[in-house]
């Protein structure tokens, strides 16, 4: 019997250890309220004025109550998963945070943030609610600020609701690898190396796409141009366009990377096979798939000059 009681408590203790720690500290406003309380207490005692004392106690108790309220507003939250998108510098994205809560009353005005040198949060003040019963998705709008790769270790969430007297916060270990790709700018300074030349622009097996500068005049659909007065290019299915190798060899490395980044996206959209060659370190053979694009972009992000 003692054994079972011991086990019971042991389990309880280990369960309580698994509970997420939340921290609560008074904010600057809270400290000001404490100072005001002290002042009023002295005034009330000196002048033996019970109204001042009562006012003081009401203020103090609301202050204490808001401590419980604030803590209640953050208790029982669990981070189910995080999804950080990979971003280009100066482009906005949305990180998705999935929370669930044990608190039957839900939470409001939760703010999430993290520390990173490559990504910043666009709207520091934006808050979101978390509802009970099903996992809540909160989106955090973020912005790339620097090219590179980083591991974001923890995600903080905090709340100051309702009176801003207390700041309650907690953090979750996420260990999320993040890449920030170079900015997409077309400087046209990198070298495009075409490797394979296969083109038999014949047959019926084509579809039309918008004309883009650089398309061969042979492939322009002249009939369509005459009909609609708009430029279309015939994209042949059987005859794939030539694979292209993007090479980094110019000196303003950052600018070239930005330019390559731009071209990668353009080529991907045109369904043209592409590869990259960064100095002598990285060589990726031409291919066209979302996975491949990702691979190339990651290489660009982690490339060290």
């Amino acid at each position: 019997m003692f054994e079972s009681i011991k086990n019971y408590f042991y389990n309880k203790i280990s369960a309580s250890r698994a509970v997420h720690r939340t921290y609560i500290i008074p904010t600057l406003d809270g400290l000001k309220v404490i100072a005001l309380n002290a002042t009023l207490l002295v005034i009330g005692l000196v002048y033996a004025n019970n109204y001042v004392l009562l006012f003081n106690f009401i203020l103090f108790c609301l202050f204490l109550g808001s401590m419980f309220y604030t803590h209640f507003n953050l208790s029982g939250i669990k981070l189910e998963s995080v999804q950080f998108p990979s971003l280009h510098v100066n482009e906005n994205g949305t990180a998705l945070l999935h929370f669930s809560t044990k608190n039957a009353q839900g939470h409001s005005f939760i703010r999430a943030y993290f520390k990173s040198s490559i990504i910043e949060i666009s709207d520091e003040k934006s808050t979101f609610p978390i509802h009970f019963g099903h996992s809540t998705t909160a989106s955090l709008s973020i912005k790339g600020i620097k090219r590179g790769k980083e591991k974001i270790q923890s995600l903080y969430i905090e709340t100051q609701f309702p009176f801003n007297f207390f700041r309650c916060f907690t953090f979750f270990r996420i260990d999320q690898e993040c890449y920030t790709y170079p900015e997409r700018v077309n400087f046209n300074i990198h070298e495009e190396l075409e490797i394979v030349e296969t083109s038999t622009d014949e047959g019926d097996d084509f579809f039309l796409r918008d004309y883009q500068t650089g398309d061969s005049l042979k492939r322009v659909d002249w009939k369509k141009l005459a009909q609609t007065n708009r430029w279309y290019t015939r994209q042949y299915q059987s005859a794939k366009p030539k694979p292209i190798l993007l090479v980094l060899d110019k000196t303003p490395v950052e600018d070239t990377l930005k330019s390559i980044c731009f071209s990668l996206h353009a080529l991907h959209h045109q369904n043209i096979k592409y590869g990259i060659k960064l100095k002598h370190d990285v060589l990726i053979s031409p291919e066209n798939s979302p996975k491949h694009l990702n691979h190339c972009l990651i290489e660009l992000a982690r490339y060290e000059t």
Binding site: L54, F57, I58, F60, C61, L62, L64, G65, F68, P162
Partner: peptide, 11 residues
């Protein structure tokens, strides 16, 4: 839940 206990406590 915030106000009533607060007032009771303050009294």
């Amino acid at each position: 839940l915030l106000v009533f206990p607060s007032i009771a406590l303050s009294l």
